[in-house]
Write a protein that binds this DNA or RNA. Sequence first.
DNA 1: CTGAAAGCGCTAACAC
DNA 2: GTGTTAGCGCTTTCAG
Lengths: 328, 328
Amino acid sequence: MKKRLSISDIANNLGVSVTTVSFILNGKAKEKRISDALTKRVQDYVKKVDYKPNQLAKSLRTGKSKSIGLLVEDISNPFFANIADHIEKMAYDNGYHIIYCSMNNDEQRAKELIQLFRDRQIDGFVIAPTEGLSEVINSLIKQAVPVVLFDRPLADVETHTVLSENMNGAYVGTMYLLEQKKAKRIGFVTTTSTQSQMKGRLEGYMKAIDKVGMDLLVKKINPSLTDDDIAQQLQSFIADNKLDAVLFATNYLAVDGLKAIKKYQIAINNLVSFDENTAFALVEPPVSAISQNIKEIASEVVRILLSQINGKSTQIEQVVIPCDLIER
Amino acid sequence: MKKRLSISDIANNLGVSVTTVSFILNGKAKEKRISDALTKRVQDYVKKVDYKPNQLAKSLRTGKSKSIGLLVEDISNPFFANIADHIEKMAYDNGYHIIYCSMNNDEQRAKELIQLFRDRQIDGFVIAPTEGLSEVINSLIKQAVPVVLFDRPLADVETHTVLSENMNGAYVGTMYLLEQKKAKRIGFVTTTSTQSQMKGRLEGYMKAIDKVGMDLLVKKINPSLTDDDIAQQLQSFIADNKLDAVLFATNYLAVDGLKAIKKYQIAINNLVSFDENTAFALVEPPVSAISQNIKEIASEVVRILLSQINGKSTQIEQVVIPCDLIER
DNA sequence: CTGAAAGCGCTAACAC
DNA sequence: GTGTTAGCGCTTTCAG
C-alpha cells in the first residue's frame, strides 16, 4: 500500500508548521487568525495531493471515533434491516458511521461484541436488547457510555429508549378485527420468549377482548421448534379453537401462520400482524399490519444518541412512537 | 467515562516494563522467553482488573484495523441482508468485524464512503458494486487495498470476484418452465439498469428459448418508476404477449410482478424468480426460485479477502457459485 | 529474560 | 499569527 501523506509531510512541503495545517484543516483558521492567503494555500495543496487525515490517529488523540455500534438480533428480519438502513443514513448525515452486528440469539457473543466495540472506542450504542444483556448494558451506562435501546426496554436497565406503542397498536388491531371484520373468535399468537414488546402487544389484545367480554385465545410459539412443528401447532390452535381471526405479535410469526394456512389449507380470512412484511400484501387473504413507524423510530434513536454523545441532555428520554394500522 | 487502564498502568502496578506486558499479551511470552511465573502473574492481573488494550492505538501502531468494509446497494433487500449476516459471522470468527453501508444508488455517496473507510484504515473491502464505481475501486486496487467484488463484476475492474452462475441458473429456470411446466410463451422481466449479473440472466433465458426456437419476450423495468406504473407495465407485458410463464431477473421484480398479478387479477401459473423471498412460498400460485447459494458466496468472499489481507495469494481469484432451483 | 525509548499521525496547550 | 512539543496507547528494535 503506497505510503500515505501525513500532516507533517504537508507541513514540510509547504514550509509551515503542522499546527497551522491542523488548525486550518479543522476549520480553526479564523479563530486562530491565520492569514487568508496561507489558509487558501494550504487548502489548495491539500486538495491537490488529495490528503486525508488518518482518522485512527485523530480518534486516538481526541478520544472520539465518530462511530456508533448497532446491535440487533437478526439483520435479516425486515424490521431490523429497515431500521438499520435508516439509522445508518441519519448517522452518516451527522458525520457518524455505523458498525453493526447481529447477535443471533447468542448471549455470550453479544457480550463479547459489546466489549469489542468498547475497545474500538465506539462513541455510542444502539441496541435492540435481548434479555441476558442487562448486566453488560448497565456496566456501559455506569461508565457513562451513551446507550439508546429500541424496540424493547429491559426491565432492570434505566436508560434512553425508543419504543413503539405496542399496547395501543395491538388494541387498535384487535378492535379492527372486532368492529370492521366482525370477528367472533380472535386468537393471539406470540412467542414463548418474554421480551417486553411482546408483553405490551398481548396486553393490547387482552384489553380489547376483555372490553367486549370475549374469550382470550393465546398461543405461545417456541421459536426454536422446526418449521413443521410450528405449522402443526398453529393449525391446531386455529382449528381447535374455531378461530375466525388471528393477531400475530410479529411479522415472522405471521409468516409462520401463512405457511401453516397454506400447508393445511386452512380457511381463515381475518389476519393482522405486528410489523410489515412484503408477503402481507401479496397473499390471499392479505394480512393487515400494525406498522411501526420505522423512520421515526430511527430518527429518534439517532437524535437521542447524538445528544448524549455531545453531552447535551442529561435526563433520560423514553420516547414512544405510535403505530399505523394498514388495512388490507 | 471512567478512565481506562493503559498498558503502562498495568506495568507500573506490577513493577515490570510495558514491553514485558505487551509481549505476554500478544502471546510472545514463550518466544521472548519470559518466565512462566511472570507470565502467569501478568495474565492473572490483567484478568483481575479486566484490562482491554485500546484497539485504536494498536491499529495506529500496526497499521491493521481488523475491520472490513461491506458496501451493498440496499441492506433491506433480503438477498443482501442474508449475505451481510453470513459475512459478518464468518469475519467475526476470524477476528474481524464489519463496517457496513448501504449505497442506495447514490454514486457520490458511495465514493465518499469508500474514501471514508480508507481513512479509517479498513483492512479490506467487500463490495457489490454499482456501475459508476469502477474508477474509485480501481484506485483502491492500485493502492494495493484488498477488494473482493460479489454479485456482479465490473467490466473495467480486474480483481477478485465471487459470482453466482447467473447464465446457467437462468437457463435451468427457463428449461424448467419449458419442460416441466410445458410453457409456450415465457416472458423475461429484468431492469433497465445494465448490471452485469442481469445480463448473464438474460443470456441464460435467451439460450434456453433459442434452443427450442420460441419467441424472446423481454420486458425491462425502470426501477425509478412508481409502483403503480410498474404494475401497469407488467400487466400489459403479460396480457399483450399472452404469456403463460414469467421468469423474473431478481426477487424484487418478482414481488412487483406479484403485486401486478394481484392488482389486475391476472391468471398466470408459472412463475420463476432469481433469488428467494419469503413471499414466494406463500402466494398462490407459488413462485419457484433460482436460489443463490448465499452461505457459500459469503464464505468464499471472506476466504478470498482474508487471504488477500494476509498477503497469501497473489493471483486473481474469480469464483463462480452454482445456483439451486427450488421448485414450487 | 527485561527495559528504555522511538514512533504510528494527530491535536492543542504554550511559547514566541 | 505561527511554531514547538507533549502526549493519546500501543508495538518493537535494540541494549543490556
